[in-house]
């Protein structure tokens, strides 16, 4: 993602690699707690970084409790309401978790919760795949500024931001490094 030059000047690290692992561990614990051991639960990551995050959560849950949570990927490109604002985006694959989503608790996983529009699109996309019993949302960072009545069930870290700022999550799987940075736009 290209950032405005001014914004690139002084990024502030919000989560280091160790912080990030700790946060993922905590969300995994919360999921286990809130879902009584992740029974009948599937994780679906929202590309790009929700996918690896979902896989990490499933890993941690397996480590903590020995439970295998099915993981899928939910591409939402075709459901976005802001397509006309940007150049055409490439469509990513959608992988339905083994066993499907019908009757299950599906936890959507994304890196940053912001306006809520991505999640709105994800709910539409999910409903075209099947009919989950319930849908929950897990995010690494909640930066505020919601434009829709959407909230996360699991939040790694709340980061109050200015609108002009941007939060960038990097993961080893996609970016070669684990960290979360805040790019300021207020200089």
């Amino acid at each position: 993602m290209a950032l405005p030059e001014a914004a690139q000047s002084q990024p502030k690290t919000i989560l280091t690699s160790t912080d990030l692992q700790r946060v993922v561990d905590r969300i995994a614990h919360q999921i286990l707690e809130k879902t009584q051991g992740a029974a009948d639960t599937a994780l679906m990551g929202i590309p790009t970084r929700g996918g690896p995050l979902a896989r990490r959560l499933a890993d941690r849950i397996r480590t903590f409790e020995g439970v295998d949570v099915p993981v899928g990927v939910l591409d939402i490109t075709l459901y976005r309401d802001d397509l006309r604002r940007q150049a055409t985006r490439a469509i990513g694959p959608t992988e339905v978790p083994p066993g499907g989503v019908d009757g299950r608790r599906v936890i959507l996983v994304d890196d940053v919760l912001f306006s809520g529009r991505t999640v709105r699109a994800a709910l539409d996309a999910l409903s075209d795949i099947g009919r989950p019993r319930s849908v929950q949302l897990a995010v690494l960072v909640d930066r505020g500024h919601r434009e829709l009545p959407i909230r996360a069930d699991y939040v790694g870290k709340n980061i109050p931001t200015a609108l002009a700022e941007s939060v960038r999550v990097a993961l080893v799987e996609t970016d070669g490094v684990d960290e979360v940075k805040l790019f300021g736009g207020t200089q």
Binding site: L78, L83, R85, T88, I91
Partner: peptide, 9 residues
């Protein structure tokens, strides 16, 4: 159609 119309015109 998506690649022609799915973005900013």
């Amino acid at each position: 159609l998506y690649l022609l119309l799915g973005g900013k015109s």
